Amino acid sequence: MKRQKTHPTHQDPVCGMEVSYTTAADEFTLRGKTYYFCSGACREAFEVEPARYIRPHRQHGVGPS
């Protein structure tokens, strides 16, 4: 039996669905990072208000500012 090659998955930042770059319905690049989406509607919601869906990055041991 031949194993299928799997692609890494990414979480749609709007709805949380797991998608890979090969199965994503849409994508959007913001500040050099590409986000993948399950639908155009999720991409549109993200594009209008990305700060609502992006979790702030926190380094270990550093509290929120």
Rank of each mutant, 00 (worst) to 15 (best):
Met1Tyr: 12
Lys2Asp: 06
Lys2Glu: 12
Arg3Met: 05
Arg3Gln: 00
Gln4Leu: 10
Gln4Ile: 00
Gln4Trp: 04
Lys5Val: 02
Thr6Ile: 08
His7Glu: 03
His7Ser: 10
His7Pro: 05
His7Gln: 06
Thr9Lys: 15
His10Tyr: 12
His10Ile: 00
Gln11Ile: 13
Gln11His: 07
Asp12Cys: 12
Asp12Tyr: 06
Asp12Lys: 03
Pro13His: 04
Val14Arg: 08
Val14Lys: 01
Val14His: 07
Cys15Asn: 08
Cys15Thr: 02
Gly16Cys: 02
Gly16Trp: 01
Met17Ala: 12
Met17Tyr: 01
Glu18Met: 10
Glu18Ala: 12
Glu18Thr: 03
Glu18Ile: 04
Glu18Val: 02
Glu18Asp: 07
Val19His: 04
Val19Cys: 06
Val19Asp: 00
Val19Lys: 04
Val19Ser: 07
Ser20Thr: 05
Ser20Asn: 11
Ser20Arg: 10
Ser20Gly: 11
Tyr21His: 13
Tyr21Met: 14
Tyr21Asn: 10
Tyr21Val: 00
Thr22Val: 01
Thr22Tyr: 08
Ala24Thr: 03
Ala24Leu: 11
Ala24Cys: 11
Ala24Ile: 08
Ala25Gln: 03
Ala25Cys: 05
Asp26Lys: 12
Asp26Glu: 08
Glu27Gly: 15
Glu27Arg: 15
Phe28Glu: 14
Phe28His: 12
Leu30Lys: 12
Leu30Trp: 12
Arg31Asp: 09
Arg31Trp: 10
Arg31Tyr: 10
Arg31Asn: 05
Gly32Trp: 00
Gly32Ser: 13
Gly32Ile: 03
Lys33Met: 11
Lys33Ala: 11
Lys33Trp: 09
Lys33Glu: 00
Lys33His: 09
Thr34Ser: 13
Thr34Lys: 14
Thr34Asn: 02
Tyr35Asn: 02
Phe37Gln: 02
Cys38Glu: 06
Cys38Val: 00
Ser39Asn: 07
Ser39Met: 01
Gly40Arg: 07
Gly40Trp: 07
Gly40His: 13
Gly40Gln: 08
Ala41Leu: 05
Ala41His: 08
Arg43Gln: 07
Arg43Leu: 10
Arg43Glu: 02
Glu44Val: 10
Glu44Gly: 08
Ala45Thr: 04
Ala45Cys: 05
Phe46Ser: 05
Phe46Met: 01
Phe46Cys: 06
Phe46Pro: 00
Phe46Arg: 09
Val48Leu: 14
Val48His: 10
Val48Gly: 09
Val48Asp: 05
Glu49Ser: 15
Glu49Gln: 14
Glu49Cys: 14
Glu49Tyr: 12
Pro50Val: 09
Ala51Lys: 11
Ala51Leu: 11
Ala51Gly: 14
Arg52Gln: 04
Arg52Thr: 15
Tyr53Thr: 08
Tyr53Ile: 01
Ile54Phe: 01
Ile54Val: 14
Ile54His: 09
Arg55Gly: 08
Arg55Gln: 09
Arg55Tyr: 04
Pro56Glu: 11
Pro56Thr: 13
His57Tyr: 15
His57Ile: 15
Gln59Arg: 13
Gln59Gly: 11
His60Ser: 09
His60Phe: 07
Gly61Pro: 00
Gly61Arg: 05
Val62Ile: 07
Gly63Phe: 14
Gly63Glu: 04
Gly63Val: 13
Pro64Trp: 11
Pro64Gln: 13
Ser65Cys: 03
Ser65Tyr: 08
Ser65Met: 01
